[in-house]
């Protein structure tokens, strides 16, 4: 028996919107720790890792570890039928091939049940070791989204270079080139607007903008985004979900030949 009740149903809506363009089908893993997912895009260039900890739910019952295969587009469609302020409950009986999404409006006078078929999905789980990254940038999520969007109108790839002073995003295309530098900020009054850089070594890596633009669909989930880079690892773009966990995107860099 599985029963997860989330007071902020809007959060689950945002989580699905943040994943459905990157991944078609995925297994959600439910354990006493929380509700999680790891999945790659079809080309295995990007990976998304989601964790919603059990403590973040108003009620969390998961009698045994269970993996439920879902089509993320269909799940997003069902969740779009929930109001942003609705309470969302996920329910599944042991061995059932369906999951039920129950939506309750804030005044509790409208209750909706949506039942979705589960799928058998063969997916491989990759081990992601803890790593010390050479450069970590924390910046406003909306600013990062804006930069990725703007640069993708000029070129297909972005060179991200981190130094002690700041982070530089560069691209080139048929019409010309673009460079955006975000300097490290030193203000203390508005931490949500800060650009913070923790650098062990300068890093310069090239990534496909198409994927970064897809990751920025998670922007409504967090005010800040953390970008971690090392020269020999995929970059990690993390959006922390307050009180619940995170959504992390891993993106393999372009490799010089």
């Amino acid at each position: 028996m599985l029963e997860l009740r989330l007071l902020q149903g809007g959060l689950l809506k945002k989580v699905l919107e943040a994943m459905k363009d990157l991944v078609n089908d995925a297994n959600f893993d439910c354990s006493p720790t929380g509700f999680s997912l790891q999945a790659m895009d079809s080309s295995h260039v990007a990976l998304v890792s989601l964790l919603l900890r059990s403590e973040g739910f108003e009620h969390y019952r998961c009698d045994r570890n269970v993996s439920m295969g879902m089509n993320l587009n269909n799940m997003a469609k069902m969740l779009r039928c929930a109001g942003n302020d609705d309470i969302v409950t996920l329910k599944a009986d042991d061995g059932s091939d369906c999951i039920t999404f129950m939506f309750e409006n804030p005044s509790q006078d409208k209750i909706a049940d949506f039942e979705m078929k589960l799928m058998d999905i063969d997916s491989e789980h990759l081990g992601i070791p803890d790593a010390e990254y050479q450069s970590i940038v924390r910046m406003p999520a909306a600013e990062f989204a804006r930069i990725c969007r703007d640069l993708s109108t000029i070129g297909d790839t972005v060179l991200i270079s981190v130094s002690k002073e700041g982070v530089q995003f560069s691209t080139r295309g048929d019409m010309g080139t673009a460079n955006i530098v975000c300097r490290r900020t030193t203000t203390v009054d508005k931490p949500e607007e800060d650009v913070i850089i923790e650098m062990e070594e300068p890093v310069s890596l090239t990534f496909a903008l198409r994927y970064l633009n897809s990751f920025t669909k998670a922007t409504p989930l967090a005010t800040q985004v953390t970008i971690s880079m090392s020269s020999d690892l995929p970059m990690v773009i993390e959006y922390r979900i307050e009180g619940m966990g995170y959504i992390r995107y891993y993106l393999a860099p372009k490799i010089d030949e």
């Binding site: 080309s43 393999a252 372009k254």
Partner: peptide, 14 residues
């Protein structure tokens, strides 16, 4: 010239 790296080049299946 550059090529796109893949996840399995960095992380191994468990």
């Amino acid at each position: 010239k550059s090529s796109q790296g893949r996840m399995e080049s960095f992380f191994k299946p468990v």
